[in-house]
Amino acid sequence: MAIDLSIYKILPHREPMIMIDQFTRDSDTMGTAVKQFSGDDYGCENGMVLQGILIECVAQTIAAHHGQTNLDKADSGPAMGMLVTIDHFEFFRPVPQDAEVTIKVEKTDEIGSFHLVKGAVFHENELVASGQIKIFNA
């Protein structure tokens, strides 16, 4: 799967650090992304996707949600932000380097520019990782 070029309108990341290929805004608080990994992708090592990259997939999915929301409101599109904390992230099984994953996020709370997000990563419809992150959007 190639990167959907519209992702550049909603996500501030660029190659080689783009960790989602497609994004769908499901609601005001939820979104879904897809990433097709290949062996030469950043974050693939020894035939597997590194666990930290799965967390980055969650962070970029919520960043895409924020960017799509801005674009829908005719604002500027992608906004700069950062991952602030990782909380209760669990990994249930490894993801092979040539796998396609689906990432689901839900913004559960916000205080100003800080957002609490629940994220889950699936491979072949099986949950492979889940947890919470806190992000800051500028």
Score class of each variant (00 low, 15 high):
G52T: 11
C44Q: 14
I53E: 05
K107W: 05
T32W: 00
I7W: 01
F136G: 04
I55R: 01
A64C: 05
Q132Y: 04
P16N: 09
R25V: 05
Q132T: 08
K35A: 03
G112E: 13
S113R: 07
A99L: 04
M82H: 02
E124S: 08
V117S: 01
M19N: 07
F23V: 08
T102H: 03
F136K: 01
L11R: 05
K118Q: 05
S27K: 12
F136S: 04
S130R: 09
Q22I: 06
E90N: 13
K9L: 12
T85F: 05
F122A: 00
H66S: 14
I62Y: 07
I53L: 08
T69C: 06
E124C: 04
Q36I: 10
T108F: 05
K134W: 01
E124Q: 11
N70P: 11
V101K: 00
G43W: 09
H13D: 08
T102R: 01
T24H: 12
G47N: 13
I111L: 11
V58L: 05
A138T: 14
K35I: 01
Q97A: 09
H115R: 04
Q36R: 15
G67Y: 06
V121Y: 05
D26T: 13
C44G: 08
I18T: 13
P12W: 10
V95A: 04
M30F: 02
I103W: 02
C57K: 01
I111Q: 08
S130V: 06
V58W: 00
H13S: 05
G77L: 10
D26E: 15
E15L: 11
G131Y: 00
L116C: 06
D98R: 02
F23R: 09
D40C: 15
K9R: 15
A2Q: 15
I20S: 05
E106L: 04
I10G: 02
Y42S: 11
K73I: 14
A129T: 03
G31H: 08
G112V: 07
S6R: 14
